[in-house]
């Protein structure tokens, strides 16, 4: 199913960037790192497409572009339909002998808003139709481009501009939608989660998603200093602690079979290594209000929810 692609850090460093520097992302933007890493995984020519959102806006300010590969953006809610059209065109144009390349891979990028919320219909449809493309969700857990509004991917308790921590309501009341599980339920060939601290794991998974025949979904974790009110120098550290606390466990589901990835497997085997969610929450201003007597019990709720989801995942992975 997958090639035996091996790479060293040097290989990656030397491989040409398709998402080039000069883009306008904020300092410490992990989403930009995710973009760059994913594009290090390509096996040949690609066409990329983005949903409206931070990564689209920072990379394409006319007349400049950060894209050293063909790229198209059309709107916010439809990046999977963008990919559908590109893939269908490539298939038929190749058949008719109107394109030279043996193979061109298609990669779609969208934020959490463009995936959990407004884009889920197009995503679900494209996956059901079985288009051969990799969908990369960079999850910065809010609508950052429009000023940090809550999304279906915003976690419980986070303060955003449309779920502000007030005197009565402690930030977002609802819970984060388990989007990757929803995608697994589509019976698609490849779904995985990845976090940029574990860059090797992320690149490997992106490559698998590219190689697999049919649709692949890669859920990447993307700390956003601007929206999370966190130290720009700590984005990669936060992306590690998210895994260590099991807030964002790393796994893949190949043809629906779940398996933990190494960084999370270590925690499954040595539960004492699992860190309390507090350590994760305290690094981010969006959870600051939880560290007050009034809302402190929300931290316990988040811990319980994290544990519950982790146990559920372990069960799916056959580890109980």
């Amino acid at each position: 199913m997958f090639s035996e692609w091996k790479f060293t850090a040097k290989d990656i460093a030397e491989k040409a960037d398709l998402f080039m520097s000069g883009h306008r992302a904020c300092a410490g933007c992990a989403a930009a790192t995710v973009m760059r890493l994913v594009l290090k995984a390509v096996r040949g020519p690609i066409i990329a497409t983005s949903a409206t959102g931070c990564m689209e806006v920072v990379s394409s300010i006319y007349p400049y572009t950060s894209w050293a590969t063909p790229w198209i953006h059309t709107a916010f809610e439809n990046v999977a339909a963008n990919a559908s059209g590109i893939e269908a065109a490539l298939k038929i144009l190749k058949k008719k002998g109107r394109i030279k390349q043996q193979r061109i891979d298609v990669i779609a990028f969208a934020g959490d808003g463009g995936t959990y919320d407004i884009g889920i219909q197009a995503l679900s449809g494209a996956v059901e139709r079985g288009h051969d493309f990799l969908y990369v969700l960079y999850d910065n857990e809010a609508y950052m481009n429009t000023g940090i509004q809550r999304s279906g991917g915003t976690p419980h308790g986070a303060s955003t501009t449309t779920s502000p921590a007030g005197t009565v309501i402690p930030g977002k009341v609802q819970y984060k939608k388990p989007i990757a599980d929803i995608m697994v339920a589509h019976d698609m060939p490849y779904v995985a989660t990845a976090s940029p601290h574990y860059w090797r794991d992320l690149i490997t998974k992106a490559r698998k998603g590219i190689e697999v025949d049919g649709p692949a979904f890669l859920h990447t974790f993307a700390p956003c200093p601007r929206g999370w009110r966190s130290d720009p120098s700590k984005s990669i550290e936060i992306s590690r602690i998210a895994v260590e606390t099991c807030i964002f466990p790393l796994w893949e589901a190949i043809n629906g079979e779940y398996q933990l990835s190494a960084p999370s497997k270590v925690i499954a085997l040595r539960p004492e290594r699992k860190k309390p969610v507090r350590e994760y929450l305290k690094m981010q201003g969006r959870f600051r209000h939880l560290f007050t007597p009034k809302f402190e019990k929300i931290i316990d709720e988040i811990q319980q929810l994290t544990d519950k989801r982790w146990q559920r995942l372990l069960k799916k992975c056959g580890i109980v």
Binding site: T74, E77, A81, N82, S84, I86, A88, K95, Q121
Partner: peptide, 28 residues
């Protein structure tokens, strides 16, 4: 016909797929 028919889940996606297929070089 020698056509790739994408039986989409909505008209929004129909038009979207036509746009990107067209940008890729297809007659749509």
């Amino acid at each position: 016909v020698d056509t790739e028919f994408v039986c989409v889940e909505s008209e929004h996606s129909a038009m979207t797929a036509c746009i990107t297929a067209s940008a890729t070089g297809a007659r749509t």
